[in-house]
Write a protein that binds this DNA or RNA. Structure first.
Lengths: 339, 339
DNA sequence: ATGAAAGCGCTAACAA
DNA sequence: TTGTTAGCGCTTTCAT
């Protein structure tokens, strides 16, 4: 184990005080270029790295960002982590991951952690973005947070999102453009704010095209493969079938695909299927899934940025926010309507 | 923001010195039961939580465990995190996740992080479990680590694994028991130690059943859907086809399934397909995949345990290790051999 | 069984 | 532009 070298070693090596070393490390002004160079040379020569515990104990920053998630769609969580870390690394921040079980005692899981860790900020992923106990604990402990894709109470705190309504609107129009007039829709998990927005986009597109939205064509799902499977069984069970099904996420769309396979329905010749999210699973079927690419990593990166730059939410002002672009990914599971 | 309460507040409240509070917190001996109770009451009353930075600065423990991963199969990574955290929470430890890009400068990614964070230990997931630069950096910085499913040099450091060879052996026997005599095999990513062991298990089972292992029935894959897809195209391309294909992981098995669907081969009537890992994707197809359930969360939990309990690897001794049980999960993608 | 004092390695407030 | 001095909230000696 290499002997621990501290700021004092660097100060001695470069012939300045520790405070000046500290200034250089933190990019504070009022350091002569020449001095700065000497210090940086010493840092490099000694291979010095500031101790994060000492830094956070003495100063205001902990150099720690938290990511809270629950009931993880694995791909989603991993994308969030990768996106957040990409930004954090550059600034010397690290990521603490905390799965929260919302069916358990949330307060008990969150409060002690916030008190011990004193993170600089927390990124909230759905459905935690809307969990009242989590939000309250964060506010009580004074830990800044950014919500990803929150559902309601948008004025409460900073957030990052994409336009779920418009994306669903566009996807529905894609289907309509292919000649589909009878389209089934599977709603997402009711605890996720995005679910209602995606549903709205579907309804708006149908209305704008003067197409009826039949209530027996809309099923409630839970974002799981199984719930998509079961919804598809109901949707496709009778002789009177829709020619396309738009599921609010990929997992459910894959459930629809499984039912279609089992019923020997040709996709997309007899049934078009569209998903939402562009998870890895979307390419892990045949035919590959037409879906909406969410900028998950980018959203997480933007959230990390907001946290690290210490954006403030001024009382009475709308909170800082970012709306990122989505992308329609048309693959093989959607095609011309039959007939 | 609730005012920060410190060990001094607790000491005052319970009428003892901060050292005694510290003793209680760390479960040190030599505290009168009565005193201990008073302190614990004060901790509860004040809702006190020790500051992790102060603790790790003053003491030896950081209460931080790292998880390194690369090129993540999302489900795998999430399982590892959940498994590790479940144990860490009880002991007041937290998880730092660090994706490592092994195609980049690994030393540069790992060394500064180890120096700043001074974690109590690191959990290495494949293929990082065998990455020489990562191992060397860890050892140089004196950070203990546990390797999950390492490939070689098993004596070097503590590890947790499952018996990949035996699992592949059992799966191959399952296929043989179904009457298959001509079985294709897709090898996993060569950087993952498990790949060779799974291949070996296949070969051993074939030998033990006096079945030939034809070289044109064994394809090299990379653990990706695409590589499984391409291997299956080669395996199934001619008129002389195997009646079953055993892929070294689920993603590749799903690639085989896609080729079978495209060729209108009935699974399992005309072709049996087996995977390995039991990722969520295994249930997200139809027919559902017969596979091997890896105890991923349990392996990560065991690794976290070893790290937190500070197991030492004595010079000249074999390192501490755990071999966990797997489980054959027979679903619908395997069946009687045709004819 | 308990406590006093001395740091851990930094940043912050204030001098110079 | 630079340095000095005090802590941050704990754990660790070492007394008692």
């Amino acid at each position: 184990m290499s002997a621990k070298i501290t700021i004092h070693d660097v100060a001695r090596e470069s012939g300045v005080s520790i405070k000046t070393v500290s200034r250089v490390l933190n990019r504070e002004p009022n350091v002569k270029a020449d001095t700065r160079d000497r210090v940086q040379a010493a840092v490099a020569a000694l291979n010095y790295r500031p101790n994060i515990s000492a830094r956070s104990l003495a100063g205001a920053k902990a150099y720690l960002i938290g990511v809270f998630f629950d009931n993880p769609s694995p791909g989603y969580v991993t994308d969030v982590q990768l996106g957040a870390i990409a930004r954090c690394r550059q600034e010397g921040y690290h990521l603490i991951v905390e799965p929260i079980d919302s069916t358990g005692d949330v307060e008990e899981q969150v409060a002690p952690m916030l008190a011990t860790l004193r993170m600089d900020g927390v990124i909230l992923t759905p459905p935690l973005s809307d969990h009242p106990v989590v939000l309250a604990a964060l506010e009580r402990e004074g830990v800044p947070y950014v919500r990803i894709a929150p559902g309601d109470d948008i004025e409460r705190a900073p957030w990052v999102s994409m336009d779920d309504r418009e994306a669903a609107y566009d996807m529905t129009n894609h289907l309509i453009g292919l000649g589909h007039r009878d389209i089934g829709f599977i709603i997402g998990h009711p605890d996720h704010g995005a679910s209602a927005r995606r549903h709205q986009g579907f309804v708006d597109a149908m209305r704008d095209a003067n197409l009826p939205v039949r209530q027996d064509r809309v099923e409630q799902g839970w974002f799981s493969f199984r719930s998509g499977f079961e919804a598809a069984e109901r949707l496709l069970g009778g002789s009177d079938r829709p020619t396309a099904i738009f599921a609010s996420n990929d997992d459910m769309a894959l459930g629809v695909m499984a039912v279609a396979n089992r019923m020997r329905l040709d996709v997309p010749a007899q049934l078009s299927i569209a998903g939402f999210d562009d998870t890895p699973g979307a390419r892990i079927t045949w035919p590959q899934l037409t879906t909406v690419r969410q900028p998950i990593a980018a959203m997480a990166g933007a959230a990390a940025d907001m946290l690290m730059s210490g954006v403030e939410h001024e009382e009475g002002e709308p909170p800082p926010s970012r709306l990122l672009d989505f992308e329609l990914v048309v693959r093989e599971s959607t095609g011309q309507a039959p007939g």
